[in-house]
Simulated assay, not measured.
Amino acid sequence: VCKEDRGAIYTPVAIMWDQYHGHFSNYHGTPWGLFDNTEGDLMMHALMNSLFPEDKEKICYSRGFRTSAHGDVFDVITNASSQETLNSYPAIFFCGDVPIDDAFAAKLVTYVKRGGKLVINYKQVESVVDKFPRGFFGAEITAERRKSRISYSRFSGKTLEERIPFTYTVAQAAKGTEVPVFTADDVRDPLVLIRKYGKGRVILTMPDFLKERYSNSAMLNIFHDLMLQLGREALPVTIDGDIQFHVNRNKKGWLVVLYNNYGVGFNATWQYPQRKPDSKFDAKVTVTPKFKAKSIREWFTGSKDLTLTVPAGDIRILEIRD
């Protein structure tokens, strides 16, 4: 493996934070350890806990080894990023309270015009809507506030039921704006709106910060449904199976790196690992490329199959050349 071309990790989705966020676990869960949390601050905790959930029952040392349906496809950037940095990501997802001044708003508009996908919550822009071109968000926003617990997603074709009701601002979609997620009732209020702008898209979400109110750990199912859709659109492969993964790009194609974090002992640590992984936790995974593959090879076993078994506590690296 050391002699192989490992390339560079592909992270198509950027999580946008405020450059002065003060978010750090050693700060007792508050900004800089000094200030009270806002709902935006809590979103930062909830998003990270939701993208990389801790599973103490199934994964030993779960603070370090986590399995996520979304994979490891994210970078974190800040509102101090250059235009070049913004343009390098297919999608940008706003997280927390991110200040937007005139200069930063102009960068975001340019980013979308050039083909980027901007995912932003109404609570993050309600005070700065006038800094963006008219029609940029593709909606007429009202002052009305409502609650719901059940929505329908055209992304997945599923009804999404939340643990508790969420609050959202009522919006009316402008002509030409898509509404892929809406309340599952007779009103069918838009909850996610997609507006084409230039070569890109603006994705406006209406439930407050896409999280459970007052929670620092739970994003809404609407959030997970949307993030899975972003991954489906951005990744060169689809991955089916309960497995942690990331994707690398090398000179000849793509590497799909699969980590099975299960079955290595609930009480094991890095100092005292369990030496005999439990085979009942072996994971069956199917990788489907979205391009015509010239060759397929798994680095450890030499297998040329796109469906493979990753033993408990082990990894597999599938190279798919294009």
Rank of each mutant, 00 (worst) to 15 (best):
A143F: 02
S148D: 14
F291C: 09
F155M: 04
L51M: 13
G64A: 01
I77L: 07
R188P: 00
I222C: 02
F132L: 07
N79Y: 03
D75W: 00
S153M: 14
K252S: 06
I15M: 08
L51W: 13
Y27R: 06
T142P: 07
K58I: 00
L226A: 08
G253Q: 14
F291L: 02
G176H: 02
F132V: 03
P207I: 09
V170P: 08
Y214G: 01
R149I: 13
T38C: 06
A218C: 10
K252R: 09
S156K: 15
T38K: 02
I164C: 06
T309F: 05
R134F: 05
Q19Y: 03
A218D: 12
E233N: 14
Q229M: 07
T286S: 15
T183Y: 05
E178R: 07
S217I: 12
G253L: 04
V310N: 14
V98N: 00
D242E: 13
T286F: 12
T30A: 05
T67A: 06
W254M: 07
S295A: 12
E233T: 11
A234L: 10
G33M: 14
R321A: 01
R163C: 01
T167Y: 00
G96C: 06
D322M: 12
F155Q: 08
G176M: 02
V192Q: 03
P133K: 02
A268K: 03
G157R: 11
N26T: 04
S151H: 13
R146F: 06
G22F: 08
L228G: 01
K304T: 11
S295R: 05
R163K: 15
M219T: 05
G64H: 07
N26C: 08
D225N: 13
D314A: 15
I296W: 04
S25M: 04
V119S: 01
S81V: 15
D186I: 08
L306V: 12
N267G: 15
N261P: 00
G29V: 04
N87E: 13
T238V: 02
N250A: 15
N121I: 02
L160N: 02
P31R: 00
A184P: 07
R134I: 07
L204G: 13
